[in-house]
Every structure is written in structure tokens, then in C-alpha cells.
């Protein structure tokens, strides 16, 4: 046991002395571990973040119906991300509220969003535009009115506090480029979880032109009963993507069964990848600087180290460096919000 302690001591000291080699091994082993854990952690935390920003996306609505360019069947995650749709030959006619009401009864409220260039005191800058009637209770919680009032007519906007910091005042007019328009500031409204965003909120088509299906537009819906996963799948089939409050808030319910299996496979694949790549890369990584090491091993052998003990020293190298690299990679890969 004390022989192995001595081996670990040598490896640790060598790792500190030969910093270049250590860094190389750390990168060769740690980086792939980092990427894999980051990927895995990323997919595991999507639900949480979507749940957190539910208010700003859905307001008080039961769901948000996102139009798509085509009417082919939509594939999506329960939280409404990862939307995919096979393309069709031609674009369909635009969705109408009537058509949607036939699929899912409820009260609809139009929204659309885009990014425009706006002239500020210090030149043009990119500004987010969200269009929805914030006076409607269905939007409760999407934005917080800080000052003034919400837009009530086309050509009126509220601005985010960040724009106030950039010199915009209530009563000012802002010149927008693409589309070329002039809008009047009637209030200041704050985004609940994107502090620092440059944003204007207007009535639908009060600033932007009409945005076709699939171009960041759709409806919020207030239904009698919560929108279930089965409803989501039904609308998917018709070619619409859906973010449902009920589904997102209880995403565990949806993910039980096949989703657990899915996660299990994910974990399995990650572990397998980490192990394989470590085995594949560790060899070349440790070959780095082995020549220098050989001299040292000869000295240790002359002091009476057996072949087994010499192997233990090389193994200790692997433990010290490989362990540290994997740990570091894993830790930074799973660090949230970076």
C-alpha cells in the first residue's frame, strides 16, 4: 500500500512539473468528456428552463400555437422545442382562426415576433419586436408595465428599460428600418426573464407587416380545459406546433414510460462514449513524454521496484491525470447556465 502511495506521489509531482504534458493529457481526455456531459446535461435541463420562462412565453394562456410553413405532420418535444417538419411541395393557404378553433376550441389571441433595426441616439441597433395585445388578460405576466401604458393603436409601442437607458423617452418617436416605419413610445414594459434585452412591444401588425405561417407567428389560446399531450399530438398531425402550459408544467407525466427509456439510453450512450474515447485517447496521451519517464523508471527499478510496482507507477499516472481530467471535464460540462 505504501508502495502505491509512493507511486501516486511521483505521478502527482510529475503532473505538476511537466505542465505542458499534463495540459495536453487533460485536454485530450477532459475535452471530449466535457462535450459529452454538456450535451447530456443540456438536454436534461431544457425542460426546467422552458418551465421557468413559461410566464413570458404563454402569459396566462393555456397554450401557444405556433404555425409552420407547411401542413405536414410536426414532430416536437413536450416543451415545444426541437420542432421538425418534413417539407411539402407548395405552401398552403394561411391558417385562419376559424380553422384552429375547429381543431382546439378556445379564445385566440394573435402574436408575432421579429427583429428590426431601430435608430437610437447613438445609431442603428438591432431591437426585438414582440407583437401581442398586452391589454388582454391572456397576456398577463408576459411583460410588466413599468411606466406609461401599453400600445392601444397601430404605430404605438412600449420599450424595454434597456432602451430607456439608451436615451428613449415616452412620447419620443423611433425610426425603424426594415420595415421603414416610425413608431411612438407610449410606455415602458419589462421582460420578466431577459434583463438587458432591447425590445419593443406593439399590437399585432402595429409595427411589423403580416407574418406568414412559419415566420414566428401564431396564436395564444385560452381553452376551457388544460391542453393535454394528446391535444398537442392532434395539432401536430395537422401541422401546428404547440407549447402547452399543462404539458410543460407536468412534463414528468409525459416523459414517464417511453421518455424514461429514452433518458436511460441517453445515459448509457454517454457513458459508453466517455469510456471508449478515454481508452482510445489515453494511450497516445500517456505516450507523450514517456522517453523522459523511462529514465526515471530505470532509476526506480534500480532501487528495487518490481515489474508490478513499475506498472503501478504508470497506472498511478493514469489515475491522477485521467481522473482529474475526467472530473474537470465532467464538472464544467454539467455546470448550468454557462
Amino acid at each position: 500500500m505504501s508502495a502505491f502511495r509512493a507511486a501516486l506521489r511521483i505521478s502527482r509531482r510529475d503532473a505538476l512539473r511537466a505542465k505542458g504534458r499534463t495540459a495536453l493529457i487533460m485536454v485530450m481526455i477532459g475535452l471530449p468528456v466535457l462535450v459529452i456531459t454538456a450535451m447530456f446535461t443540456g438536454s436534461a435541463t431544457t425542460n426546467v428552463t422552458m418551465r421557468e420562462k413559461l410566464g413570458s412565453v404563454l402569459g396566462a394562456a393555456d397554450a401557444r400555437i405556433v404555425t409552420r410553413p407547411f401542413r405536414t405532420r410536426v414532430e416536437q418535444n413536450p416543451d415545444g422545442t426541437g420542432i421538425g417538419q418534413p417539407s411539402a411541395k407548395r405552401r398552403e393557404r394561411p391558417w385562419t382562426p376559424g380553422e384552429i378553433g375547429a381543431l382546439l376550441p378556445g379564445r385566440l389571441l394573435r402574436y408575432q415576433a421579429n427583429v428590426v433595426e431601430a435608430r437610437l441616439a447613438d445609431g442603428f441597433d438591432r431591437v426585438d419586436v414582440m407583437e401581442a395585445d398586452l391589454r388582454d388578460p391572456m397576456t398577463g405576466g408576459m411583460r410588466r408595465l413599468v411606466e406609461g401604458r401599453f400600445a392601444t393603436a397601430p404605430g404605438e409601442v412600449t420599450v424595454s428599460p434597456e432602451l430607456v437607458d439608451r436615451g428613449v423617452r415616452i412620447g419620443d418617436t423611433i425610426t425603424v428600418w426594415r420595415p421603414d416605419r416610425t413608431v411612438r413610445v407610449v410606455g415602458v414594459a419589462e421582460h420578466p426573464n431577459r434583463p438587458g434585452v432591447l425590445e419593443m412591444v406593439a399590437l399585432p401588425e402595429g409595427l411589423l407587416p403580416h407574418q406568414n405561417d412559419g415566420n414566428d407567428s401564431g396564436w395564444l389560446i385560452d381553452t376551457a380545459a388544460p391542453v393535454q399531450w394528446s391535444d398537442v399530438r392532434r395539432l401536430n398531425k395537422a401541422g401546428l406546433a404547440v407549447q402547452s402550459r399543462a404539458v410543460i408544467e407536468s412534463s414528468d407525466a409525459v416523459s414517464s414510460g417511453p421518455m424514461d427509456m429514452h433518458r436511460l439510453v441517453q445515459v448509457g450512450v454517454s457513458v459508453l462514449l466517455v469510456v471508449t474515447e478515454t481508452v482510445l485517447l489515453a494511450g497516445p496521451a500517456f505516450a507523450v513524454g514517456l522517453r523522459r519517464r523511462r529514465r526515471e523508471l530505470a532509476v526506480i527499478a534500480a532501487q528495487g521496484a518490481s515489474a508490478r510496482q513499475l506498472k503501478a507507477i504508470v497506472l498511478a499516472d493514469g489515475l491522477v491525470l485521467g481522473g482529474a481530467a475526467a472530473l474537470l471535464g465532467g464538472r464544467s460540462g454539467s455546470a448550468p447556465g454557462c
Binding site: M1, S2, A3, R5, A6, I300, Q303, G304, A305, S306, Q309
Partner: peptide, 9 residues
Amino acid sequence: MLPRELDGV
């Protein structure tokens, strides 16, 4: 210490 540690001391 090394030879002694290798010897299990």
C-alpha cells in the same frame, strides 16, 4: 524513503 516504501514499510 522510496526503496523502503517499495518494500512495504
